[in-house]
């Protein structure tokens, strides 16, 4: 055997674990980062809108915060997905492309349905706000349920179910309470799962 290959079992096991961690860092999708970005966008963006409705902060500021954090949260999963797919062919890539594009399709379809319904119903600003918050939470919830089934991830399933509950709660809460539901139930739920993933990966 080659001389450089002389490893003790302990060195060998350390090499395997170190190499796995490095590959996860360089090639894997980091759901804790994506959930952190979206959780912060919801918490600070929609929390900001709640404060704007209370007259605490200017509405422009709340819009800018949501826009900036939302842009980061939108780009991050695309960057992660492209990096993970580089040089790979096979079922994982197909599933990843389908899952990633499903988020885009679902939110585009929802946006068209919501805007045209709101126009046809001549909906009041309150109804418009409730339609947006509930439908966004419901679409996100369903996508997390789908992700949980694809990757057999029970905690993600719990987040999906929680987002669906939040969708209902946001309508029941009315305006401006729906912004608190978006910020704390929606954003808080995503941050909780992000934190759970971090703790799990360290064990």
């Amino acid at each position: 055997m080659d001389r450089e290959g002389e490893l003790s079992p302990a060195e060998s096991l350390a090499l395997i674990e170190g190499q796995r961690a490095e590959l996860r860092r360089r090639r894997g999708i980091r759901p804790e980062l994506i959930l952190l970005a979206w959780g912060l966008a919801y918490l600070l963006g929609f929390g900001g809108f709640y404060l704007a409705l209370q007259g605490v902060v200017p509405e422009v500021l709340a819009g800018l915060v949501l826009g900036a954090l939302g842009a980061v949260a939108l780009v991050l999963p695309i960057v992660e997905g492209v990096r993970a797919a580089r040089g790979v062919r096979g079922p994982s890539r197909t599933v990843g492309v389908m899952y990633g594009s499903a988020w885009g399709l679902a939110f585009c379809a929802n946006a068209i349905v919501q805007t045209s319904l709101q126009r046809q119903l001549a909906a009041s600003p309150e109804i418009v706000s409730l339609m947006w918050s509930s439908s966004s939470l419901a679409v996100a919830g369903l996508m997390y349920l789908a992700g949980a089934m694809l990757w057999r991830d029970v905690p993600q399933y719990l987040l999906g179910a929680w987002m669906l509950v939040s969708a209902a709660l946001s309508v029941l809460a009315g305006v401006p309470g729906n912004f608190l539901v978006l910020a704390f139930a929606g954003g808080g739920g995503m941050l909780a799962l992000s934190g759970y993933y971090v703790i799990r990966s360290r064990r």
């Binding site: 490893l7 060998s12 790979v88 062919r89 096979g90 079922p91 994982s92």
Partner: peptide, 23 residues
């Protein structure tokens, strides 16, 4: 497998999903 370079190759390939291939 018990040689540093091949072990690293095996670890890298083992992180792929079933039936996935890497260039």
């Amino acid at each position: 497998i018990h040689a540093q370079a091949r072990l690293r190759v095996m670890v890298a390939l083992s992180t792929l999903g079933p039936k996935d291939q890497l260039t």
